[in-house]
């Protein structure tokens, strides 16, 4: 089954934090760490587990980073992006 095989390869890929992902890569959200307002904001913009996030570009001074989530672009500071656990997409 396609679904099964995707699920199993997904699990083999290592978990990493969103701020570690280089521009140009696409990742899938696995888990949101942290509590409170930041988490709520991230959820509202669609950073829910399973969502696909595209890392677009870094700001000139390396921080913040621009991400595309559900068709919208956001600028997020690294320390905030660090709260998002992600996994590389196979593509």
């Amino acid at each position: 089954m396609v679904v099964m095989s995707v699920a199993s390869t997904d699990d083999e890929l290592p978990l990493l934090r969103l701020d570690e992902v280089q521009p140009g890569r696409r990742v899938k959200v696995v888990h949101l760490k942290g509590r409170g307002r930041l988490r709520r904001r991230l959820l509202a913009m669609g950073m829910v587990p399973g969502a696909i996030v595209e890392v677009l570009r870094k700001a000139p001074l390396d921080d913040p980073v621009e991400y595309r989530v559900k068709g919208t672009d956001y600028s997020i500071r690294r320390r905030d992006a660090h709260m998002v656990e992600v996994r590389f997409m196979e593509d």
Binding site: R37, L42, M45, E66, Y74, S75, R77, D80
Partner: peptide, 8 residues
Amino acid sequence: PAPFIMEM
């Protein structure tokens, strides 16, 4: 400072 998330 609070988290800074800005729509572009």
